[in-house]
């Protein structure tokens, strides 16, 4: 099976006036469908930068990033947006729900943007997901009326509603207490198992890493290693 993400010799530099900040310095990586991968590394090592490139919200300074077989460097802004809509789901550290919309409406939003399903299909899809992430009883609530864990569940549902091949999550548990964080990772893992969706998530938390199939260790913008996680997850995998 071809890799869903393929990164070859990617360099990302940020320019702050005259100073060039190297965030990624020659990263190569392949991620295959169905993987549940954690990106780990100290603060400033380039985790978010890497996820941004994979998520097509930012472009590499040099090197090649392919997602779902598309060389992102060759796509227009519009095509990149379409690629994000169709192929990628996002889970954010601070949930990023649309505060004026209800839980149901937030989850439905990507489907409305995609315009592929009629309203009955949408309803079925959204309700099914709300059920799966265990937030169905709160579908009429506003994000502000939910706890952090509940919000992140809604975000997981929103990321999955278009049935993307790849879900990216940048520190999805950083704003949650550790028990709740565990729950979210469990939820993601479950979705990964049920639907075969590829997950790439970054984290500082070694406990969270344990759930991954593989841990990509970043250090100063380079890949320091690709390990199998230790602990119970290893046993499970």
């Amino acid at each position: 099976m071809p890799p869903i993400v393929s990164i070859v010799d990617v360099v990302k530099e940020y320019r702050l006036g005259k100073v060039v900040v190297p965030a990624l310095q020659g990263v190569s990586l392949e991620v295959h469908p169905g993987e549940f991968i954690s990106v780990a590394g100290p603060s400033g090592s380039g985790k978010t930068t890497l996820l941004n490139l994979i998520g097509c919200v930012d472009t590499a300074t040099r090197g090649q990033v392919s997602v779902g077989g598309n060389d992102t460097g060759k796509l227009s802004e519009r095509q990149l947006t379409s690629l994000r809509l169709d192929t990628i789901g996002f889970i954010f550290q601070s949930f990023n729900l649309v505060s004026v919309l209800t839980v149901y409406q937030n989850v439905e939003l990507p489907l409305l943007l995609a315009r592929r399903l009629d309203s009955a299909e949408r309803r079925g899809r959204v309700n099914g997901l709300l059920e799966q992430v265990g937030i169905a009883s709160h579908e009429r609530h506003r994000p502000s009326e939910l706890s952090g864990g509940q919000r992140q569940r809604v975000a997981v549902a929103r990321a999955l509603v278009t049935e993307p091949k790849l879900v990216l999550a940048d520190e999805p548990t950083a704003n949650l207490d550790s028990a709740t964080g565990q729950n979210i990772i469990d939820l993601m893992k479950e979705m990964n198992r049920r639907k075969g969706t590829t997950f790439i998530f970054s984290t500082h938390d070694p406990k969270v890493m344990e759930h991954a199939n593989a841990v990509i260790r970043l250090s100063d913008g380079r890949i320091a290693g690709r390990d199998l996680p230790r602990g119970p997850a290893e046993a499970r995998a």
Partner: peptide, 15 residues
């Protein structure tokens, strides 16, 4: 933040 989120999850500029 909201606009960026909408753009990230696939909303085009005209939207």
């Amino acid at each position: 933040q909201t606009i960026g989120t909408l753009r990230a999850i696939g909303a085009q500029r005209p939207f």
